[in-house]
Write a protein that binds this DNA or RNA. Structure first.
Length: 812
RNA sequence: GCCCGGGUGGCGAAACUGGCAGACGCAAAGGACUUAAAAUCCUUUUUCCCGCAAGGGGAGUGUGGGUUCGAUUCCCACCCCGGGCACCA
């Protein structure tokens, strides 16, 4: 009879069909089971898989299945939001109503993705393009508005001409758009809506301590840098025009060494301090800075002709304008202390401005002729009443003085800026406010939510919201005075969507609230979140912010959304990093159709540990496919073995290998998720079984095959189920318990002890476990080979590690 | 420039606590089966030297040093690659 061949298509489709209605992975809230909530970043809504997400899904999916087998309550939802629209699809998407587009893609995703990603909790399927999701986005917006957490102001914003929309600071990469990496971002002044994320700057920073250990250090460092908290002092210098200019410094202890004040070219005082020529020079600086991409800019500046008085010393110093001073940070003006700041040193050296040391090292002298800035803390000198104090103490007393005399105070500044959420895009949740000439900005009443997008829209891509050209959308009645008014046409950044979607998963059909706080109290925090490191400062800061804002609204109790974060590697193909804007994604169909979902997933796990990038090479996929075929054939041809027969010796070997494998994989799942070595261990087991195939008794074979099927469950569920079925077992394979290992069976009979001479391996001996040091030493020294090597030399020392190693140290 | 990662065969990688470097897989070579091919199964595969052979010896985890009986693992310096930040006062 010809052997059955592994036909992945048939097997996968068969079980795919049968599992359609099984409510697998369904979270059973308030059950006795421990809860476990694993959540990944989202699959790609284009009908193709973003290849990075192939990896995502293989990790989270295998983990969830394992947890299920261990008896955990697993919520393993699938869904997506609208962000991450690929550039080449944007045009298409923009010409269609988001809802229509989304529904079409749900269908496409169900076809290709479901078999691969294996999630059955379709109740929790959420599209952030659905009117219901808009409703709750808008509800949040109104809550924010009520609390002064959302506001509107005219602001210089980042503008991408390619997207024809505003970008958040977080979306600007190297001076270019995060989607269009070669399009420089322009600055435009526009009326924009903002979320006051800076109100939470301290909390976002301090609560990082709650995340330590659970989040990768790298991500936490990036967030700390992004928030960029600096503790310092603000102080007013009085100008000769009578006006004051406020500077921010972290080193007020150096202020007696300030030899000029430098303003950012955009500083409002520039207009009053310079003539039209000076204003033009300032303007040119601003422009050239905007056009200059990343990297170093050459420091430039000019003297305004005006002087300012140092509030501490009363000294008159010149006021300059410098292109390296940023308007967006601190006060947009600095005091330059060239002796103790590298940037100031460079600037003042270039323009011949005085350099004066006022800090000396604790064990040294003032550097009268500095060749470079000395920036460390030290002892303050030449600083009047503060002379002789250590830097830290001087700062404290100087802050007190500033406050006492009313020319300044201790101050903290942040790099983090408020989150600009306005987008001039069709795609996105409409911002639910109405502009009335008489009443001003009027929120849309809650009863009128959701504000939905009109269907017929002409996408111009001209830099204004396409909604402005839809009169039936724009022209509305003011809810307050009932007069004619205009609807806001900006839509929300889609990062708003992704900031809270995981909460909605826990209560996706709630019609009265975004979610029931009690349900959130049960599920949250998320035990394990899996996503790419590229979200370290975008999504992962916004969602932390949203959680804190929702907590203050009273919806959630947790301070933080995610207890443990795992940042998985990317999938690379042909040396190129997969990226949304480049659109080089691998169609799911291609790999899944050719080799099957089991093979594709298992390869993604096998190629490298999950935190590393992997190169998707088709030859590697072949290897995994061959392996699954090998397993299938072995299982099917041995499924009906009669009990008895075989050799006890072979049986013991097979069981030992089996339990060693079980132990290893259990440990891999519990601690580090190095599934590549788990899969290697299964391969080793199968190789061993091939070698022992004809010597195994029917009983051992049955035991081994059953456990093998269970072991494959997390990685290759379809094949696992097929083998389970072939063995005549009832039910669904991964609803079985995860097999426990027996440490006794996993043990080797004898310890293999290495014999080294001077650290070099010279032989092995097999001994009983627990053989004493003395016996081991004796046996090693009497070893024939060791004897010949020693050859009369003197043994200086023998190191014995029981059950492991003997190292004989000889002299001469 | 600053802050994180990382560097191991032809390739992806393993070695989890300082204890046999290269598990597992890919690619390659040889063999079995076959009229033939595919598929499958078996064997070899870090490298150099000695040997007909069994076997034996040396080198080897980016480079140089150190600690140690023993270092891919710990310490110091340097080189290279990747990522983040980059005038943040």
């Amino acid at each position: 009879m010809p052997e059955k061949q592994y036909d992945h298509t048939q097997i996968e489709l068969k079980w795919f069909e049968r599992w359609q209605d099984a409510a697998l992975y369904r979270a059973e809230e308030n059950s006795d089971r421990p809860k476990y909530y694993v959540l990944e970043m989202l699959p790609y809504p284009s009908g193709q898989l973003h290849i990075g997400h192939v990896r995502n899904y293989s990790i989270g999916d295998a983990l969830a299945r394992y947890k299920w087998m261990r008896g955990f309550n697993v919520l393993h939802p699938i869904g997506w939001d609208a962000f991450g629209l690929p550039a080449e699809n944007a045009a298409i998407a923009n010409r269609r109503h988001p809802r229509e587009w989304t529904l079409a893609n749900i269908a496409a995703m169900k076809r290709t993705y479901r078999r691969f990603a294996f999630s059955y909790d379709w109740d929790r399927e959420i599209s952030t393009c659905e009117p219901e999701y808009y409703r709750w986005n808008q509800w949040f917006f109104l809550k924010m508005l009520e609390r002064g957490m959302a506001y509107r102001k005219k602001a210089l914003v980042n503008w991408c001409s390619e997207c024809a929309t505003v970008l958040a600071n977080e979306q600007v990469v190297d001076g270019c758009c995060w989607r269009h990496e070669t399009t420089p971002v322009e600055q435009r002044a526009l009326e924009q809506w903002f979320f006051r994320i800076t109100k939470y700057a301290d909390q976002l920073l301090d609560d990082i301590s709650q995340l330590e250990g659970g989040w990768p250090d790298r991500v936490l460092t990036m967030q700390r840098n992004w928030i960029g908290r600096s503790v310092g002092t603000e102080a007013d210098f009085t100008l000769d025009t009578g006006a004051t200019v406020r500077v921010f410094t972290t080193r007020v202890d150096t202020i007696h060494g300030a030899t000029c004040v430098i303003l950012a070219p955009e500083h409002p005082l520039v207009a009053t301090l310079t003539d039209s020529e000076g204003a033009a020079r300032g303007k040119a600086m601003v422009d050239s800075r905007a056009n200059q991409g990343p990297g170093d800019i050459v420091k430039e500046g000019f003297f305004t002709g005006h002087y300012a008085m140092n509030p501490y010393s009363g000294e008159r110093v010149p006021v300059w304008i410098g292109n390296f001073v940023l308007m967006g940070y601190g006060t947009g003006a600095i005091m330059a202390v060239p002796a103790h700041d590298e940037r100031d040193f460079e600037f003042c050296t270039k323009y011949g401005i005085a350099i004066r040391s006022v800090i000396r090292p604790a064990d040294g002298d003032l550097d009268e002729q500095p060749g470079a800035a000395f920036t460390e803390d030290g002892i303050v000198e030449r600083s009047g009443e503060f002379s002789g104090l250590p830097s830290a103490e001087a700062r404290r007393r100087m802050n007190e003085k500033a406050e006492r005399e009313g020319f300044g105070q201790a101050a903290i500044t942040y790099r983090l800026k408020d989150w600009g959420v306005s987008r001039q895009r069709y795609w996105g949740t409409p911002i639910p406010v109405i502009h009335c000439e008489r009443c001003g900005v009027v929120p849309v009443p809650e009863a009128d939510l959701p504000v939905v997008l009109p269907i017929d829209v002409n996408i111009t891509g001209r830099g204004r919201s396409p909604l402005e050209d839809v009169p039936e959308f724009v022209n509305v009645q003011c809810p307050k005075c009932e007069g004619a008014a205009r609807r806001e046409t900006d839509t929300m950044d889609t990062f708003v969507d992704s900031s809270w979607y995981f909460y909605r998963y826990c209560d996706p059909r709630n019609a009265g609230l975004p979610f029931d706080p009690a349900k959130i109290a049960y599920w949250f925090r998320i035990d394990q979140y899996i996503g790419g490191v590229e979200h370290a400062i975008l999504h992962l800061i916004y969602s932390r912010f949203f959680t804190k804002a929702m907590r203050d609204i009273g919806l959630v109790e947790n301070d933080e959304p995610v207890a443990n974060l795992f940042t998985q590697g990317m999938v690379i193909r042909d040396g190129a990093k997969m990226s949304k804007s480049k659109g080089n994604v691998v169609p799911a169909d291609e790999s899944v159709e050719r080799h099957g979902a089991d093979t594709s997933r298992m390869f993604a796990l096998f190629a490298a540990p999950p935190e590393k990038d992997v190169d998707w090479r088709d030859e590697g996929v072949e290897g995994v496919y061959r392996f699954l075929g090998r397993v299938y054939r072995f299982a099917t041809r041995n499924a009906d073995r009669k009990p008895g027969g075989g050799s006890p010796e072979a049986g013991r070997k097979a069981l030992r290998k089996l339990h060693q494998t079980l132990k290893k994989i259990t440990e891999d799942f519990e601690s580090r998720w190095h599934f590549n070595t788990s899969i290697a261990a299964i391969m080793e087991l199968v190789n061993e079984l091939y070698a022992l195939e004809n010597e195994l008794s029917g009983d051992v074979m049955a035991e081994v095959l059953e456990k093998l099927a269970l072991l494959l469950g997390p990685f290759a569920p379809y094949l696992s189920q097929e083998i389970w079925d072939e063995l005549g077992k009832p039910g669904i394979v991964f609803q079985q318990s995860w097999p426990a290992y027996d440490p006794e069976l996993a043990k080797e009979d004898e310890a293999e002890v290495v014999i080294q001479v001077n650290g070099k391996v010279r032989g092995h001996i097999s001994v009983a476990f627990g053989t004493s040091r003395e016996a081991l030493e004796k046996q090693a020294l009497s070893d024939v080979k060791v004897q010949s090597l020693l050859n009369g030399k003197q043994v200086a020392k023998v190191i014995v590690i029981p059950d492991k190693l003997i190292n004989i140290v000889v002299k001469g």
